[in-house]
């Protein structure tokens, strides 16, 4: 049992929640998807994001017990559970990003803390600080190539890889959960900037935003 105090960011009372891109979708435009759209953007708002830090072995045991998910031990590893809705990604030798459906993160954090006890680890709920953007379509990789210096060729960036790298003159987490879909995990404070960058980069491919 842990004596760390937690903060429930999803209170029982009904409070309106806005995703980091709520402003952008209204004010920066959201081009419709047409038959000629070769790139499609989609925000996956208000998911639960937890940063796990500590030793790989103790965190791996706890995560297996609570979620049945194993911690990627190799750099740039990205593991999903069977449903594909929960993922854990290597960020650094002692740091992982856990993303779960919105609302699950509070109870998940409690369960992890119960299992971890007094282990020397840190769990931080960063759900409000970042958001996920899906990028799909036949020209999705072209948009990424215009935006990042990282090599996104399939031979260098297989499915199940995720990296933190330079993206559009800032930094972002770029992940490849499936052969056809890419994910960007971006900061809330950079969300509008990156969203508009992506719209601009995708304009020539008829980029459309799914809402």
């Amino acid at each position: 049992m842990s004596d760390i105090r937690q903060f429930q960011t999803h209170p029982e009372v009904d409070v309106a929640t806005e995703s980091p891109l709520a402003y952008s979708l209204q004010r920066s435009g959201a081009p419709a998807i047409t038959s000629t759209s070769q790139v499609i953007l989609r925000e996956r708002p208000c998911l639960g994001h937890l940063i796990l830090r500590g030793g790989a072995i103790v965190l791996d045991e706890a995560l297996r017990e609570v979620l049945g998910l194993s911690l990627p031990s190799q750099p740039h590893g990205l593991n999903h559970d069977a449903s594909g809705e929960r993922s854990v990604q290597w960020l650094a030798p002692d740091e992982w990003l856990l993303i779960v459906p919105g609302g699950e993160e509070f109870s998940l954090e409690s369960q992890l803390r119960d299992v971890l006890g007094d282990s020397h680890v840190s769990i931080v709920n960063v759900s409000g600080g970042q958001t996920v953007i899906d990028i799909e379509g036949e020209m999705a990789r072209a948009v990424l190539m215009k935006s990042s210096h990282y090599d996104v060729h399939p031979s260098a960036f297989p499915v199940g890889k995720g990296v933190t790298t330079g993206f559009a003159k800032t930094s972002a987490i770029l992940r490849r959960p499936s052969a056809s879909r890419w994910e960007l995990v971006i900061r809330r404070s950079f969300a509008d900037y990156l969203y508009r960058w992506l719209l601009d980069a995708g304009e020539e491919y008829g980029i459309g935003v799914e809402r």
Partner: peptide, 12 residues
């Protein structure tokens, strides 16, 4: 040595 791959200079 931690990411175990080569990266662009501007990341450092």
């Amino acid at each position: 040595p931690y990411c175990e791959e080569h990266r662009e200079e501007e990341e450092f």
